[in-house]
Computed example of a mutant assay.
Amino acid sequence: MLKLDCVSAFVCVAEAGSITAAAQRLGLAKSVVSERLAELEQTLGAQLVQRTTRRSTLTENGRIFLARARRLLSDAEDAVAELAQQGSELIGPLRLSAPVSFGALRLAEPLFAFMRQHPRIELSLELDDHFVDPAADGFDAVVRHGPVLDRRLIAHRLASSMRHLVASPDYLAEAGPVACLEDLSVHRAILYSRRGADWRFEGPDGATVIRPRTALRLNNGLMMRSAALAGLGIALLPSFMVHEDLTAGRLVVIDAGAAPQGAELFVAHPLDRATSSKIKALVTHLRAAFGNPSFWEHTTRQQPRG
């Protein structure tokens, strides 16, 4: 029979990179961690960790088992939390992942308010612009900006977030205004390097694709906003990121005669988290905090005409 303390020791070794580091994290003797790891390998009948004097690396069996080991520990923690839960009080760990820009700009305040309402929740948040697999990576839920196509996940809509072509007034004064999509070809573009370089627009005849001239490629939306504020070119950015800049006039929305394709914000979680009261409460809280329509959709300042 699998023992949870043995599974915990294995996960900690995998994450820490060595038995010594895992022992320090767990507050146990190195010999105890080594014994628990050996007991788990004996129970499973497979070597999980290749040990060296300085570092421990996962075997192929270890890499396969790691995702399930994390899920076993997560399920155990959730079971303890549910048994301990009394009345409407929410208790126990809640592990979230979110995109870097959205997490930094829009999640902090509502999450801190959520924690004040539910002080017995143990929240862990990791910001990552890669598409995280919540089941494999040990998360209860992930925030996604864009469609959730994985059928293993249940998605709850949080808010809308239009995308805008934006630039600084100084850049447009120097480079000239944009009256139509064709005008974009002579402007400098600040592009997101994790996606294709195309800009897509909705029109009466369907989608139109523009391949702008690249001035700068960045893998972070906040850096793209900073580049636009610095007058380096035009960027296609979500409204949640530029709301205050548009209100203050530091950036303006470029009307090229067609609307950029928008996106929705979701909280997505594995099927086995469908009954989680913590996730349900979080989704309800975030929806109320963002509003419908979301507060960042209310103000846009257009480029000057003429």
Rank of each mutant, 00 (worst) to 15 (best):
A79M: 03
D272K: 12
R25M: 05
F240G: 12
N61W: 01
A81P: 03
F131M: 07
L265H: 04
M223S: 15
N61F: 00
L73H: 02
L232V: 07
S74R: 14
L149M: 11
R301E: 06
S277V: 08
S34W: 00
C6P: 00
V132D: 00
A98Q: 05
L153A: 06
A16M: 09
A38M: 02
E182I: 10
D78Y: 00
S34L: 04
K3W: 00
L4A: 08
I64T: 07
H298P: 03
L105V: 13
T247D: 12
D272Y: 11
R116Q: 12
D272R: 11
V253Y: 02
L218A: 10
L83T: 08
P169Q: 13
L181F: 07
H118Q: 11
V80N: 03
I279S: 10
A16N: 03
A23K: 07
G306F: 06
A189C: 13
A135Y: 08
C6Y: 04
A268Q: 08
A76R: 10
Q24R: 10
A69Q: 03
L246Q: 10
L184H: 09
S18K: 08
A215C: 14
A29S: 05
A23R: 04
N61S: 13
S168C: 10
F65H: 02
H298A: 15
N292T: 11
S239D: 14
H130R: 14
C180M: 10
L28F: 00
A46L: 06
E126P: 00
I91E: 06
G249S: 12
V80D: 05
A23V: 04
L40A: 02
T43R: 05
